[in-house]
């Protein structure tokens, strides 16, 4: 069986026939060639695959592409216009909020999701909101600093 879906990703509409078992993250990476969204654990724990779907952060390895039919999705590629850095991206750069960078797209989307509902979070709120995002490099400290600095800048 294949199912026709229509999804808006980073402002562009895409229509595809998909196998119902296709995961959203594979749809984004393989069908749309948007490889900024990473696959880490594949078991819903690491958050590397986090994207925004209709304004809310979701783990795209734990959604089927068919569930996104009609939805509007933002991936790391769509966070800021081509060639520009989103304030969170700039803050991660400035504050050394990344080392290998594997977790970063998911971290930034999760942080953006937090700032959308809580524009000036405290440190513990930031840490709590990153519970679903794992980083094996930084020890989180500079990630928290980056999000605080982006929030101060009004991201």
């Amino acid at each position: 069986m294949s199912v026709k879906i229509e999804v808006e990703v980073n402002g562009t509409r895409h229509e595809r026939e998909v196998d119902p078992r296709l995961l959203l993250v594979h749809f984004l990476r393989e069908e749309l060639s948007l490889t900024g969204t990473n696959v880490g654990c594949e078991t819903s724990l690491c958050g590397a695959c986090t994207v925004k779907m209709d304004g809310l952060t979701v783990k795209s390895c734990t959604q089927l592409a068919v569930q996104a039919d009609g939805a509007s999705i933002t991936t790391i590629e769509g966070l800021s216009p081509e060639g520009e850095l989103h304030p969170l991206q700039q803050a991660f750069w400035d504050e050394h909020g990344l080392q290998c960078g594997y977790c970063t797209p998911g971290m930034i989307l999760a942080a953006e999701g937090l700032l959308a509902v809580n524009p000036s979070p405290g440190e513990s709120e930031i840490r709590e909101s990153l519970k679903g995002n794992l980083c094996r490099c930084t020890g989180y400290h500079n990630i928290v600093k980056a999000i605080q600095s982006a929030a101060k800048g009004g991201a």
Partner: peptide, 9 residues
């Protein structure tokens, strides 16, 4: 429950 992404879905 879980984390924000899990709670959103």
């Amino acid at each position: 429950i879980g984390d924000p992404q899990v709670r959103n879905k």
